[in-house]
């Protein structure tokens, strides 16, 4: 495998005793000739400051990190530890957000690492056409997340202990009447459930269609599962939209109207740096 050989080559080039070697963590690339203010940002380590690395007319936001803290092995452990992963994801996100609030910014994925400034500058410069294309696509836009929830309907028929005592009529002819009534109840329950499912999918599609009309681009993400145990709602839509800055207020109004019209619980998050829309679509 050429990739593996290349990595090995890099390792040997740097010689032995590389445990203390530094790596460069890249957070984002932004469009500016001036330096964004990154002074108060912590980044992913407290040892070194977050700083700017000039790449032509673009600027990468980077941080020197200890190489041994950012190997694949260490990341694999990190990924199994929710608290650790959250720390890094939020650290990454806060740098990206801070820079994006100052200049047009393309976020890089979590854990983009280079063997030093020269390597980072060289690699990122090689991608500058893609960065420019992404910057053009997201210019004057922000990303907004829209989630739709429907309540978990706890219908009476769901519970087997809900069997009602037989009425006077069925008591006289217990066998046939009770059996038929039971089947009838089962059938109703089943069709009610299917109805509910169809209804919530319809609500999800309606919300998605309306918001998509207002958005420049849209993407459906996987719905999240319920978090806390007593959260009695089901997420039926998890979508994200690239919305022009001047239409953000319209989105607000639209969502309010959709809430009234559908009765569904609709959550909006944003504005996000357009993470979901900087990749090739």
């Amino acid at each position: 495998m050429s990739q593996g050989e290349e990595e090995q080559g890099l390792m040997t080039e740097r010689g032995t005793g590389t445990s203390e070697a530094n790596a460069v963590y890249a957070f984002a690339v932004c469009h500016t000739e001036g330096d964004p203010d990154v002074e108060r940002l912590t980044g992913v380590t407290r040892d070194e400051p977050v700083r700017c690395l000039r790449i032509g007319s673009l600027t990468a936001i980077v941080q020197t990190v200890r190489g041994s803290d950012f190997t694949d092995e260490v990341w694999q452990k990190r990924l199994t530890d929710e608290a650790e992963l959250e720390r890094y994801a939020r650290a990454h996100h806060s740098v990206v957000s801070a820079v994006a609030s100052q200049f047009p910014t393309v976020p890089l994925p979590l854990a983009t690492l280079y063997n030093g400034d020269e390597r980072a500058a060289l690699s990122l410069a090689g991608e500058s056409a893609r960065f420019r294309a992404a910057l053009t696509r997201i210019a004057h836009h922000a990303e907004w997340g829209v989630k739709v929830y429907v309540p978990v309907a706890r219908s009476a028929g769901d519970d087997p202990s809900d069997e009602r005592p037989a009425s006077a009529a069925t008591r006289t002819r217990p066998a046939t009447g009770a059996g038929r009534a039971y089947l009838e109840r089962k059938r109703n329950l089943h069709s009610r459930r299917e109805q509910r499912q169809a209804d919530s999918l319809r609500v999800a599609d309606a919300v998605d269609a309306d918001v998509s009309r207002l958005a420049t681009e849209s993407r459906r993400l996987r719905p999240h599962g319920g978090g806390a145990g007593d959260d009695r709602r089901v997420q039926v839509l998890n979508a994200t939209y690239l919305v022009a800055g001047h239409r953000a207020a319209e989105l607000d109004l639209l969502v309010a109207e959709l809430r009234r019209r559908t009765g569904a619980h609709i959550e909006v998050s944003g504005p996000w740096v357009p993470y979901s829309f900087v990749g090739e679509v």
Binding site: Q3, S123, V278
Partner: peptide, 15 residues
């Protein structure tokens, strides 16, 4: 957002 999507850029250190 930080993992699933975004622009695909090759780093030197493969994570």
């Amino acid at each position: 957002r930080v993992l699933d999507k975004g622009i695909v850029i090759a780093g030197d250190i493969k994570i």
